[in-house]
C-alpha cells in the first residue's frame, strides 16, 4: 500500500512540476484497518529524494455502511469481528460482504458509503523557479 502511495505521490509531483514535496495527506478508510504506525513506517522506508523532507499526514475515515435493501445506516465495528475475519477484510475489504450483514434486515447487499480503503488525498510542494 505504501508503495502505491509513494509511486502515486511521485507521479503527481512530476505532473505538477514540483521540485520538492512538503506534505502528503493519506486518507485511510477504517474498513481496511490499516495501522497508522505500520503505514507510516513503510512510507518512511520508501521515501524518495523528491519527498526527503515531506511530512506524511495520515487520517482515518470512519467506515459508514448503508443497506441497499432497507436503507439502514450503521458504523463499522471492527471490535465485533474475529481476528481471521478482520485480517480477511484488511486484505480485501469487499469480503466484508461475506462476513457482515445489515443489522436491520440481515442482507449482505450493503454499500460502503465511505471509509473503504487508502486514498492519496493531497500533496503540497514547492517549485524552485517560483
Amino acid at each position: 500500500m505504501a508503495e502505491g502511495v509513494i509511486s502515486t505521490a511521485t507521479k503527481i509531483a512530476k505532473e505538477e512540476g514540483l521540485d520538492e514535496v512538503k506534505e502528503v495527506v493519506v486518507k485511510i478508510g477504517e474498513l481496511q484497518q490499516v495501522e497508522h504506525d505500520v503505514l507510516n513506517f513503510a512510507l518512511e522506508q520508501l521515501r524518495t529524494p523528491i519527498m526527503k523532507d515531506a511530512k506524511f499526514v495520515l487520517e482515518t475515515i470512519p467506515a459508514k455502511l448503508k443497506c441497499r435493501v432497507c436503507d439502514e445506516e450503521w458504523d463499522f465495528s471492527p471490535e465485533e469481528l474475529s481476528e481471521e475475519v478482520s485480517e480477511a477484510i484488511h486484505f480485501v475489504p469487499e469480503v466484508a460482504h461475506v462476513y457482515m450483514k445489515c443489522p436491520g434486515c440481515g442482507s449482505p447487499d450493503f454499500e460502503v458509503v465511505e471509509g473503504r480503503g487508502v486514498l492519496l488525498a493531497s500533496i503540497k510542494g514547492v517549485k524552485k523557479d517560483e
Binding site: 500500500m1 508503495e3 502505491g4 502511495v5 509511486s7 502515486t8 493519506v26 480503503g117 492519496l120
Partner: peptide
C-alpha cells in the same frame, strides 16, 4: 483523491 493501488 487518487487511488494509490492503480500505480503499482
Amino acid at each position: 483523491m487518487s487511488d494509490p493501488r492503480l500505480e503499482i
